[in-house]
């Protein structure tokens, strides 16, 4: 008896809660829609900002593209006093310093990552990994000051004179090492950049090496492979695209780095050899923008900025695509 009563009661209560629930669901729906709109707007803002930045630089650079034509990127003659802006030297400097940085940092990072994932005793792995991340957190101006006050005198007194003497006799690339070896120049900028991007590349490599399934490596070891063979034939092929992605990530950072480069590159807006002063796109903009009186000068600097933006964007986009490929690959196996 009491039981049926209870069921009746609860059925009543259920009816009541049904309408309540419906109302509640309606309200939830509205709030949810509002919430969705808000977060979508936040996401859209990022895209708008990106688009806005590109458009502003494109529009600002238009006058320079129009006035200088292809000479803007194909000739070396940057003369703000006479409003001639042929920017091959900064473009060349940006590409060369970034290339040097990657050439040095990539193999070093590979070594660091292999040691951390395959060879280091387990008590050392965490502290070392943290140290690498700390290296990535050092502000770039610190690298610049260290470069100027420590690296420059060292290289200028001990390394570059020797390099200028001996490397300049090499066939083909000998002329790259001509010039006045005082320690300031493209090569020094490349070296400082290499140290700066090393932690980024190394930590990506370390991460992706950890995704290699242990059975693959263990099988190889069981078949008698050396550590080198496991790294070269198992780990690297498995993670190839992500490793390239990591290197491109480092390249992207090297292309845009300003402060550290400005300290040690010599800021000379003309083409030169590796031991001679040069400039990069970002260094030129940082140097000249604040006091660029002429509209044409400002436009030329914005135009250079646009070029840098496009190059960095393509490099970083490629890096993402290559890293994503590893995840897909990992899913399939």
């Amino acid at each position: 008896m009491s039981e049926t009563r209870e069921t009746l009661l609860s059925a009543d209560a259920l009816n009541l809660t049904d309408t309540l629930l419906e109302r509640r669901a309606g309200r939830d729906h509205r709030i949810d829609a509002l919430f969705r709109m808000m977060v979508a707007a936040a996401a859209a803002m990022v895209l708008l900002l990106l688009l806005g930045a590109v458009l502003v630089m494109w529009q600002g650079g238009l006058a320079a593209f129009g006035a200088q034509g292809w000479d803007f990127i194909s000739k070396d003659f940057w003369d703000p006093a006479n409003e001639v802006f042929h920017g091959l030297a900064p473009i060349f400097g940006t590409l060369v310093t970034a290339a040097i940085a990657v050439l040095i940092a990539a193999p070093l990072s590979l070594g660091v990552a292999v040691f951390l994932t395959e060879l280091a005793p387990s008590w050392l792995r965490r502290p070392l990994a943290i140290a690498i991340e700390l290296l990535a957190g050092i502000p770039s101006i610190i690298y610049g000051m260290w470069g100027l006050f420590v690296l420059v005198p060292l290289l200028g007194e001990h390394v570059y004179p020797w390099l200028g003497e001996n490397a300049s006799r090499l066939p083909l690339i000998g002329s790259w090492f001509a010039g006045v070896p005082i320690g300031i120049g493209l090569l020094t900028a490349g070296l400082v950049l290499a140290i700066m991007i090393l932690p980024f590349i190394a930590s990506v490599m370390r991460e992706v090496f950890l995704t290699v399934p242990a059975p693959l490596k263990e099988s190889a070891y069981a078949l008698g492979s050396t550590t080198w063979e496991v790294v070269w034939d198992i780990v690297l092929p498995y993670t190839r695209s992500a490793v390239v992605g990591g290197i491109l990530l480092g390249l992207g950072r090297a292309l845009g780095e300003t402060m550290a480069v400005t300290f040690v590159i010599g800021n000379a807006n003309r083409l030169g050899a590796l031991l001679e002063p040069g400039t990069s796109i970002s260094a030129t903009i940082a140097n000249e923008f604040a006091e660029a009186f002429a509209d044409s000068h400002r436009s030329a600097l914005l135009g250079l900025g646009f070029l840098l933006f496009v190059v960095s964007f393509v490099v970083l986009g490629l890096a993402r695509v290559l890293r994503a490929r590893l995840n897909r690959q990992g899913g399939q196996r």
Binding site: F77, W78, D79, P80, A81, N82, I182, I184, T262, F263, G266, N267, A268, N269, R270, P277, T279, A286, N287, E288, E291, A292, F293, H297
Partner: peptide, 16 residues
């Protein structure tokens, strides 16, 4: 060379 707040220097090193 001419005059201006930045010019095309014939040679040398630039400090910021």
């Amino acid at each position: 060379v001419g005059e201006g707040t930045t010019v095309r220097w014939p040679g040398g090193f630039g400090g910021k």
